[in-house]
């Protein structure tokens, strides 16, 4: 009974521990946008190269209609300022560690 399950468990023993959960909605962004630096997606900006401020400002501009787009002006209206900031912080380029 446990033969199959056990092989899975052992395989996973090397896996890293639970990561910090993303802000609500942020995982959906990654259905199109990558946030890995060096990603080679065509068409969608790679979020991991942007700062949290840049992402937050872009969402605010889409929401207010100041910035044109295809789906983003609609999607941005689904999030409040606070929600958008949390998403931006989840997905942005990590800030440089202090030396």
């Amino acid at each position: 009974m446990t033969a199959l399950a056990t092989s899975g468990l052992i395989l996973l023993a090397a896996n890293r521990a639970s990561a910090e959960p993303l802000a609500p909605g942020a995982a959906s962004c990654l259905a199109c946008h990558e946030n890995r630096v060096g990603a080679t997606t065509s068409g969608f900006p790679t979020l991991g190269t942007l700062s949290a401020q840049q992402i937050e400002a872009a969402l605010a501009a889409y929401r207010s209609g100041r910035r044109d787009g295809t789906v983003m002006p609609r999607i941005a209206k689904g999030f409040s300022d606070i929600e958008a900031r949390a998403i931006a912080e989840s997905l942005a380029r990590p800030e440089a560690a202090p030396r």
Binding site: P21, P24, G25, S28, C29, A31, C32, T70, V71, R74, I75, K77, G78, F79, E83
Partner: peptide
């Protein structure tokens, strides 16, 4: 578990270079 937000986006083609989308949160 934290209360989630979910997005759907769906692109359709009317012709090979003629696309459009529907989306929602």
């Amino acid at each position: 578990p934290v209360e989630p937000r979910l997005i759907n986006v769906c692109y359709s083609l009317a012709a090979p270079e003629y696309g459009f989308s529907i989306s929602g949160v």
